[in-house]
Design a protein around this nucleic acid. Structure first.
Length: 118
DNA sequence: CGTATGACGAGCC
DNA sequence: AGGCTCGCCATAC
């Protein structure tokens, strides 16, 4: 691949604006790996603390957070998103109809990336 | 190179 | 609703 899969994921996630969210499968589709949602989750899991990638804006298709590993605080994601203005309902879900990032196609993102590099 | 491992998702009770 | 399986696929080992 011209660009590492994880780097593609990070690049796309960095484009999600404050106040919006995307799903793992949505990110996977944008980087042209429509069935690699799990791997997207792993890519975010692998991020270091203090990263500039807004990992908290990626949630699952149910509209809930799904951090299970013991290394990370399972409540942190929701707290950050609420600070960004995302509202969770009484069942801990966000309204994807309302908050889902419209997204872009990978060619557009790759083009933008080339601009940034030059 | 074979197996295992998930911050997933869809489907089926 | 809640709890299962299965398929998925880039990495880890």
């Amino acid at each position: 691949m011209a660009v590492d899969f994880f780097q593609r994921v990070y690049q796309v996630v960095r484009m999600i604006p404050r106040g919006k969210v995307a799903t793992y499968s949505q990110i996977a589709a944008i980087v042209s790996h429509p069935r690699a949602a799990r791997t997207v989750g792993w890519a975010l899991h692998a991020l270091p603390d203090g990263t500039d990638v807004p990992w908290q804006r990626v949630i699952n298709a149910q509209g809930t957070t799904s951090i299970t590993c013991e290394l990370h605080d399972p409540l942190l994601q929701r707290e950050i998103l609420e600070e960004e203005g995302i509202v969770f309902d009484e069942e801990g879900r966000v309204d994807l109809e309302r908050y889902r990032w419209a997204g872009l196609e990978w060619p557009e993102i790759e083009a933008l990336w080339r601009e940034w590099e030059s």
